[in-house]
Amino acid sequence: MIELQGIHRKFQVGNEAVHALQDVDLSVQPGGYLAVMGPSGSGKSTLLNIIGLLDRPNKGLYLLDEQDTTELNDRQQALVRRHKIGFVFQFFHLVPRLTAAENVELPLILAGFEADKREQRVQQALTALGIADRARHRPDQLSGGQRQRVAIARATIMRPGIILADEPTGNLDRSSGKEVIDILEHLNQQGMTLIMVTHDPELGGRAARRIQMLDGYIQSDTARKHEGI
């Protein structure tokens, strides 16, 4: 259960303070499917980063499974990211010198899994995503769709409860983009909470719940009654 209360995030750009998020309240139930939409600069990525503990709010309360995350130290936050959250980026962010399998293995290494258990898990994940034959390829030998699938395998290898996807199809062609969305939705059907940032209305329309952001505010939320009034 994700619960944001009165979240503020501002950046200092030169002399000007940019309010990326202002007084954001949001709660997402486990297993939910949420699309965050809005024009660029509306704060949707910042919102996702704060939910994923990649960024800290300047003000406000963020409860993840009833735990106040803003009070956690670096190590505790790392543990939450490792076990509860999987992140999928627009630019994949694979480590270029490592093979697909080694990229997927990284979170398991950080968690201290035994080597044989790691191999088994990585094999499973790659097979499930249909890229088992690409396990020994480096990212530059993979297509965009394959890279994103490797990234999804890495994000889900620890079986987190939440998948955060920041424009996961932004760098992909239409057909591989659709495949990636299918994979993410399939994971959602298995019970993972899926929060996806997108500015594509068609993609957003597939989500069970959509929020529209503008200038750091949540402008509309399909889960709220009397929206837009």
Partner: peptide, 16 residues
């Protein structure tokens, strides 16, 4: 630095 950011995003602590 990007790689370090990624490592942290997938659950590495600063110490690691």
């Amino acid at each position: 630095t990007t790689e370090i950011g990624l490592m942290k995003a997938i659950g590495a602590s600063g110490g690691q």
